[in-house]
Design a binder for these strands. Structure first.
Length: 604
RNA sequence: GGUGAUAUAGCUCAGCCGGUUAGAGCGCGGGACUCAUAAUCUCGAGGUCGGUAGUUCGAAUCUACCUAUCACCA
């Protein structure tokens, strides 16, 4: 199964660093990305997986205001926690950085200037709400007023909570500042840049046509209709700058009080983080293998709320800046796939951070194994529709599937060899038909599970691997080595050897999902070395600031997506249970956390 | 209001460019086994596929309308 290594770029939507990560982030964004990335790493492909904290945007400044601290303090606090949380989860980013680096600022500004030079932007005067007292324009989220649909008195600047209509803040009746209700706002004009999407309608449609066969139905249909409608009416431009003091500055004379819109700038992070990564590893041109190589494939992992940004705006931006930092012929690569996930609900209800209806990753990582969380969330991935995280389901899947089926298969086979075959992989002699069949079955898993992983059908791929687990348990029960060993030691050795070999294969098939226990199992089987590289937090110094980032170092990784060659006679290490069985009581105790007041605890 | 996705056994889901008695895992009931974290194996009972109306020899699978949920847009 040797093949030319491919260049696979895995980019993950950037979370706002204004609060901890919860299972929604894992389910929609970074866990599918990590599973996909780890699979490709095992395949021997060149993977570049990047993301980072979004340090800008009104969620950050709102949080800063609420706590009476600076936006920098807010984002640095949560950025640090993101690094620790994702390290514990084993999310193998080559680089998880943030958007307040000098590198990102410069690249975002370069992209803006090139888009402007290439006439992909236009400027227009907008009417916006201005606070004379504060001497600044107020973002919609800072504005309240009377709803012009229903008359509700405290409609927000972006949406009315009473009637649900979206609001144009300048049309609110008696608009006022949310923080200072007696501060009456006035309308003032301000010049802004817009991205001219209308000129990209045809190239975007052509781009979609090239990916029809493998994009998820919702992503493709939704995007296509949006663009088609745009072709009829002209895709509307979107403002990319706004009047703010927190964000990436607009690099033009006289634009001091303006910053980029956060969605324009954070999505550029996929590109800027790639460039930063290349810099960090001392190969400053290396990012081009993914961005300017026609054979490379870029995958964006995100939630469904983010689809149009990734399938319309970002590709348009990339088309508009092709050639940036590069002399060659090929254009910048566009996303090859945008496998957006739907949402994960909690115990039948929608996430709500304000009501604390959420499951916080730093908290549950204190109580459960990372692989157990990864397993349940992966089995429940909202790939085709919204799914539900239910603690009863967590308990059942961990105990019945992870512990009882997979963990127990490992445990019974290794224990048997440990006690009856001198702590070694038995010398098999002649294998029986069913021994050969189960080995063949597990070896076929590399093609079967691999094909599903490549289509980003991660739930199906995991299910396919678990079917092999069940077949292996059935094989062992049918062969009964614990009985056969009394009269035919060779026969028992054959069936146990076959089982260990199957387990060795399953170790790799499951490794993208269960990297921690796969490593433990690897060692119990008597191997040395690490299946994957190391995941570490490093500090990077720029001209005036330094920042921390999570970095995957592939050095020394020996894991390989290919059939086991388990050597007979190999010395085993003492088997220990891979997974902890959970008590039924956790269902009630975990449910009690939902909706209750939460204290943020130090991450150990 | 528009666009898209989703709606299948108690639960979680697969099947859906039409075609034999609608599949899997879990749960549940009956057997077997004891190497294993009371784990494993095996047999079985459970759905007529959100609703209505069509197309067709034949629809969970196609069409229209409706309902519900979610997202995006207005």
């Amino acid at each position: 199964m040797s093949h030319q290594p491919q260049y696979i770029h895995v980019s993950v939507a950037w979370p706002y660093s204004n609060g901890d990560l919860h299972v929604g982030h894992a389910a929609g964004n970074f866990l599918p990305a990590d599973i996909f990335a780890r699979y490709h790493r095992l395949r021997g492909n060149h993977v570049l997986m990047v993301s980072g904290s979004d340090t800008h945007g009104t969620p950050i400044t709102l949080e800063a205001d609420a706590r009476g601290i600076s936006p920098v303090e807010v984002f640095e606090h949560y950025h640090r926690r993101f690094l620790l949380t994702q390290q514990k989860m084993g999310i193998s980013y080559d680089l998880f950085t943030h958007t307040d680096t000098e590198s990102h600022h410069r690249i975002a500004q370069d992209i803006f200037l090139l888009l402007r030079e290439n006439q992909c932007l236009y400027s227009e005067t907008q009417r916006l709400l201005f606070s004379e007292r504060e001497g600044r324009f107020l973002p919609d989220r800072y504005v309240e007023g009377e709803c012009y649909f229903c008359g509700y008195d405290s409609a927000r600047g972006d949406q009315c909570d009473e009637c649900g209509n979206l609001i144009d803040a300048t049309r609110l009746i008696n608009p006022r500042s949310k923080n200072a209700p007696d501060d009456r706002l006035v309308i003032r004009e301000s010049e802004h840049y817009f991205i001219d999407l209308s000129r990209f309608s045809d190239p975007l449609l052509a781009y979609l046509e090239g990916h029809e066969s493998h994009w998820r139905a919702n992503v493709m249909q939704f995007t296509r209709n949006m663009i088609r409608r745009g072709v009829e009416e002209g895709l509307r431009g979107r403002p990319i700058t706004r009047d703010l003091d927190w964000g990436v500055p607009v690099p033009l004379e006289g634009w001091d009080g303006k910053r980029f819109y956060v969605w324009f700038e954070n999505i550029i992070g996929y590109f800027s983080a790639s460039v930063e990564w290349a810099q960090n590893v001392g190969r400053p041109e290396a990012w081009k293998h993914w961005w300017y190589n026609p054979d490379a494939k870029i995958y964006n992992f995100l939630g469904k709320d983010n689809i149009p940004f990734h399938t319309i705006i970002w590709p348009a931006e990339l088309m508009g800046i092709s050639g940036l930092y590069h002399d060659g012929e090929s254009p910048l690569n566009l996303p090859h796939d945008v496998p957006a996930n739907e949402f994960m609900n909690i115990e039948g209800r929608q996430f709500s951070t304000s009501r604390n209806w959420a499951i916080w990753l730093p908290d549950i990582l204190e109580r459960y194994q990372a692989d157990a969380i990864r397993y349940y969330v992966a089995m429940t991935f909202p790939e085709t529709h919204d799914s539900d995280f239910a603690w009863e389901g967590f308990l059942a899947r961990v105990n019945n599937e992870l512990v009882a089926a997979w963990g127990n298969l490992v445990n019974r086979a290794l224990n048997f060899a440990w006690r009856n075959f001198d702590a070694r992989v038995p010398q098999p002699g002649a294998l029986g038909d069913s021994d050969r069949a189960i080995i063949a079955r597990s070896e076929a898993g590399f093609a079967e599970v691999g094909a599903l992983l490549e289509q980003v059908r991660l739930r199906d791929a995991l299910q396919a691997a678990m079917e092999i687990v069940r077949a292996a348990n059935a094989h062992l029960s049918e062969r009964e080595p614990w009985i056969r060993i009394r009269e035919d030691r060779e026969d028992a050795a054959a069936s146990v050897y076959a089982t260990l070999k199957v387990i060795d294969n399953l170790k790799i098939l499951l490794a993208p999902y269960l990297p921690f226990s796969a490593q433990q199992l690897h060692e119990m089987l008597g191997y040395d070395g690490r299946l994957f590289g190391a995941l570490e937090i490093h500090d990077f110094q720029e001209a005036t600031h330094s920042h921390e980032a999570l970095c995957y170092d592939p050095q020394g990784a020996i894991g390989n997506w290919s059939a086991s060659e388990l050597p007979p006679g190999q010395q085993l290490r003492e088997p220990k249970a891979l997974f902890t069985r959970l008590e039924p009581e956790i269902v009630e105790s975990e449910r009690a956390f939902l909706g209750a007041k939460r204290e943020e605890r130090e991450i150990s």
